[in-house]
């Protein structure tokens, strides 16, 4: 019994700890997904789809998961994207809010309050702007500021991105992109904060390469 307590028990504890560490960090992957055997080939397909995507028109559903509350905070709206850097996020439920990114400007509309920012003058806004647009379009995969690992199941690819950039790393722990294997475009984004609170944005009824009026990217 003494031998068990002194030597064997700590040894078992050590083995279990290593096993836990391996499953949680080294092989961290979403349930039902396995690492992709040839990631370069898959990335090529995603890059081809990204290159041929000139515009996206979709409904979106945003779920905010806070660790201290069981219910999710759900908001819905419409997303419009026009290559290379025009984006409109229009929230309609449970509040109304418009966020437009157009070139180097960001415009927000909140009822009667309209604001405009120069993205270049604010490093945080600028980084987050690139992150949002890059995630929606899929070209974030080629971004040198992120380390990536690729997983798949029969229908979907899951690409986990870890920010290597110090500035982005202050705000975001990881980004998960879910990409459908039918069209190799992003169907869902999971943004995890350092507190492990996370946001999932799902794109529904996605229409690719439909023409979008230019005025959509300005606040009326």
């Amino acid at each position: 019994m003494h031998l068990f307590n002194k030597i064997i028990r700590p040894f078992i504890f050590l083995i279990l700890s290593i096993a836990k560490l391996m499953t949680t960090t080294l092989f961290a992957q979403p349930e039902g997904y396995k690492p992709v055997a040839g990631p370069a080939e898959i990335m090529l397909k995603v890059n081809e789809a990204t290159a041929s995507t000139n515009s996206i028109n979709a409904h979106f559903e945003q779920e905010k998961n806070l660790s201290f509350i069981e219910e999710k905070i759900i908001s819905k709206g419409i997303l419009l994207y026009q290559k290379p850097d025009k984006l409109r996020l229009e929230y309609s439920e449970p509040f109304t809010y418009i966020m437009i990114m157009n070139g180097g400007r960001m415009m927000t509309g909140n009822g009667d309050i309209k604001s405009e920012y120069d993205l270049k003058s604010n490093k945080m806004f600028s980084e987050i702007n690139n992150l949002i647009i890059g995630s929606i379009q899929g070209n974030i995969l080629n971004h040198p500021d992120f380390g990536s690992s690729v997983y798949e199941n029969t229908e979907t690819l899951y690409i986990k991105l870890i920010p290597l950039n110090k500035e982005l790393n202050k705000y975001i722990k990881s980004i998960g992109l879910y990409i459908g294997k039918k069209d190799y475009t992003v169907s869902e984004i999971k943004i995890t904060e350092h507190s492990d609170d996370y946001t999932i944005i799902k794109f529904i009824n996605k229409v690719i390469n439909e023409s979008i009026p230019e005025e959509s990217f300005y606040l009326q």
Binding site: Q62, K64, L66, F68, I69, I73, S75, L89, Y91, F95, Y97, M99, I128, I132, Y171, I191, E193, S195, D197, T199
Partner: peptide, 18 residues
């Protein structure tokens, strides 16, 4: 939060960044 007799207050952006 009943357990700690407290009120947790989280302020975040519309795009849900805390």
């Amino acid at each position: 939060i009943r357990k700690s007799n407290s009120i947790r207050t989280v302020l975040m952006s519309e795009t849900s960044l805390k």
